[in-house]
Structure formats: structure tokens, C-alpha cells
Amino acid sequence: MIPEELRLTPAAKDGLFDLLSRAVLGCLLLFALFPIYWMVLTSFRTRTEITAADPQLLPFALEEIPAIVRDPALLLEILHYENYITMWGRFPVLDYFINSLIIATTTTAFALVVGCLGGYAFSKYGFPGKGAVGGALLATQMIPGILILLPMYLLFLWVQTTLEIPMIDTYHGIIFVYTTFTVPVAIWMLRGFFDTIPDSVEEAARVDGCSRLQALVRVILPMAAPGIAATGMFVFLVAFNEVLFASILASGDVTPFAIGIQSFETQTTAYWGEMMAASTVATAPILLLFVIFQKPIVEGLTEGSVKQ
């Protein structure tokens, strides 16, 4: 046993424990943030710096810091912003971005409309088959996408040849697929947000002469706006990141960013600098939006799983 004089007092134990948990937190933060830091740093480096035999972990040597503080213009010489200029010419990044924006925002708009209606029905009304429909909504999240993609590809081919409506490599084709994929999640998240609005709100609106639909559109939806924004951002991200369906159903002129960015690494050369510059451009607004909307997003995601 440990001799009495070497035992830690409760206060010292607490202090040690706090220290330990701060250290673990530090390690976790380093693990979580280093790749993001590395993306930004790489985007500001030249080809030689990126492929150097001894890559530097910092953008500049520590001895240079006083000089940089005195003359911030030095940073422009140290950080090479060329990648942010050359990437647009070397790859059709702008097209990728525009395609992704068109696909993801339209998907978000459709999914929110369908999801708000469905989520409200789930939150406020009881109806026969509610349990079964809810179960089916969740079950859609567990189907391997490939099981749907194979027949979907055949269906799109058939529609193209028989009905002569172009489907493969079109905006409407991929948007249609994405909307359906995201609707179950949207319903599930929005249901949680509608649950927080008391039933009396609809009743009051109806006493004032609104129909049920008017009550939903004019009174309930504005109240649920933060939740709708959070759901919208989630749907947007899902659509933005999807690659399985996009790689088969959205190439050519409608290639989205998630597929296009991979072409920065060719058989012979990897344009890491440009790739990371484009990645930084894509990531920055998303992280910014998250920091602004994080409260409803985090609540919406944890709601269903924890309350169950």
C-alpha cells in the first residue's frame, strides 16, 4: 500500500485529474483540427514546399515571427496565394462549384417543403399507420445506396430511350434522387423542432380564422425558422457531399464539386496545392455557417436519438 505521507489529498487528486483531462482535451483538439490546419497551410504552399523531403509543420520559422509582427506584409511573401489563382484555369472549379450550388440548394428547397409538411403531420397529428410510416422513414437510412443505384440507373436509361426525357447527367435527375434521399431525415429532424411548439398555437390560429394549412404556413413555420435553417443546412451538406449517385448519374456538364475535386489528382500528378485551395474555398463558408447556426443543428441531431 502507499504510505500515508505519499497519498494525495483530495484537492491534489482533483487538480491532477483536471490537469489530465485538460491534456486529453488538448490531444483531441490537435487530432480534430490538425487536418483542417494542414489543408489551409498546404493551399498556401508551392509545389516544391509541398513535396519537400522535410515538410515544415509551421508556415514560417519561429525566429521569423518578430519580423512578421513588425512588417505583416512579409506574410504575403511567405504564404503563396498562387494556388487560389491558378486553380480556376487548370480545372473547371467554377463549374463544379456552380453545379454543386444548383444541385444542393434546389435539393434543400424541395426537401424542406416536403419535409415541413410531413414533419408537421408527424409531430401534431395521430393517424392510422403512423408507426409503420415512421419505421419506413428510418429504414430508408439503412439501405445500401448501391441497391437503389443499380435499378435507378436502368430506370433512367429506360426513361431516356423510351420517353426521350434526358435523365442521366442532368440537374433534374440528380436533384430528384437527392430530394427523396434527404426527405426522411428532414421529416425526422423537423418533427423534433415542431414538437417544441405547443399545440395551442395551431388552435389559436384556427380560432382566428385560419385553415389548418394557413395556420401551418403563416404561424407555425415562422416560429420553427431556426429549426428549418438547421435542417436545411444538414440537407445541403448531404447533397453537397454525395458521391455514389453523383459519380454515375451526374458527370459531364453537371459534375458537382464532390466528384470534380477528385480529378485534381491525375494518374501522373497530384495538384495538392490547388486541390487544397479549392477545398478551403468550399469549407470556409460551411464552417462559418455552422458556427452561426450550431445551436439548432446540434439540438436537431441529438433530439431523436436521445429522447427515444
Binding site: 482535451l25 483531441l28 483538439l29 480534430a32 483540427l33 487536418p35 483542417i36 494542414w38 489543408m39 498546404t42 451538406l237 453537397f240 457531399n241 458521391v243 464539386f257 464532390a258 475535386i261 477528385q262 489528382e265 497530384a270 495538392w272 486541390m275 487544397m276 477545398s279 468550399a282 469549407t283 460551411i286 464552417l287 455552422f290 458556427v291 450550431q294 446540434v298
Partner: peptide, 24 residues
């Protein structure tokens, strides 16, 4: 702040973060 920062790996577009790891 720690919670926000720890959530970032999940919020950043996964295609981008996977490519960062591929590079690393």
C-alpha cells in the same frame, strides 16, 4: 469553444476532409 471546435471534423465537407487525409 472546445465543443464547437471538436464538431468541426464532422461539419467540414467529408469529401474535402477525406482528401486531406489522403494527402497526409
Amino acid at each position: 469553444v472546445a465543443r464547437t471546435l471538436l464538431l468541426l471534423p464532422w461539419v467540414a465537407p467529408v469529401v474535402v476532409t477525406l482528401l486531406i487525409w489522403r494527402m497526409m
